[in-house]
Design a protein around this nucleic acid. Structure first.
Lengths: 166, 166
DNA sequence: TAAATGGTTGGCGCTACACAAACAATCTGT
DNA sequence: ACAGATTGTTTGTGTAGCGCCAACCATTTA
């Protein structure tokens, strides 16, 4: 190899994301269990809080999860009163899924309980860095790419998309 | 909820991390398949590249994976010549696992191939933001929390770093 | 009225993974 | 030198997550 070659690595975040997510998830499980939640429930609740009400199909698209599995997931959450299924007025076939107050509260409790986990897993990052990490993740997840067909389903709900940034 | 209420959310990254990792993984699979790799292989290769040589136990600890499963994982990678198991000179029970140059090359190829996936999943982030995201993830994963006993095992082996022929 | 759509249920199957047991090679303490 | 612990390997078993298919309502659309 030439001596002055700049070894430009590819810097893809995918593997690191998965690696970190696994660590986080494994440790979260025990913390979440007393709250009657599992990691995937937390993801669903988070999505519902951050993206707002959604049809079940929209949720399936967002979570990239098979529709039949979303049913079970929502059954769990609704049984605990964390989530609500209402028939859509415009199209009564649809269910509009929304976070209840109890759901929002439980989600918040869970996030509080996860402080120790985050401290452990993100121990190498200081307060500021964790904050920007959260912001980046939040922004990355807030905008659903328009490339896929699922976007169409989501777009309907996401119609209230504003281009405000701070 | 009253609109003027200052809703202080907890800003935990865990759920977002998992959410994003899932999206990334699902789309990665098809891209990785022609290279004979699966997401978890990529994680292993990435860890080996970023953290250097490691005992199998150390790898199991780092990946938070059961030891017996690490065997199978490494069998896959070694069969493809992407990874090498050498007996440790100091303790011949141990295998020192290291990335081969073919492995490094394949990893790089994979990361190149994943450009489109990242474009899609991280579409909401610009070049700079993706860069800082990568840096944050990298730093978060580079420092293994000293809480666990695994750290000792890793550190011990880490001394046996070898210069690779190129 | 017929066909398509959203949701629900049940079942089948695959993959990832943990866990346990048994074994070989090797190290460590007495 | 011997006993016991430790690393890695194999094999087997169990379980959870999840995709997929098929059948079935309720509703909407053609």
């Amino acid at each position: 190899m030439s001596p002055d070659q700049v070894e430009q690595t590819e810097r893809r975040s995918g593997a690191l994301l998965e690696y970190l997510a696994r660590r986080m998830r494994l440790r979260s499980e025990s913390v979440l269990a007393p709250l009657g939640l599992r990691p995937r429930h937390l993801v669903a609740l988070t999505v519902l809080r951050d993206a707002g009400d959604m049809s079940q199909q929209g949720l399936a698209g967002t979570l990239q999860l098979d529709g039949t599995n979303v049913v079970g997931l929502l059954n769990d959450l609704e049984a605990d009163g964390l989530v609500e299924r209402r028939r859509s007025p415009e199209d009564r076939r649809r269910h509009v899924v929304s976070l209840t107050q109890t759901g929002a509260k439980r989600l918040n409790e869970a996030e509080c309980a996860l402080a120790s986990v985050e401290d452990e897993v993100l121990g190498a990052l200081n307060e500021n860095e964790r904050d920007t990490l959260y912001d980046l993740l939040r922004r990355a997840t807030s905008e659903v790419p328009a490339t896929c067909a699922e976007a169409a389903a989501c777009a309907e709900v996401a119609a209230a998309c504003t281009e405000e940034d701070r």
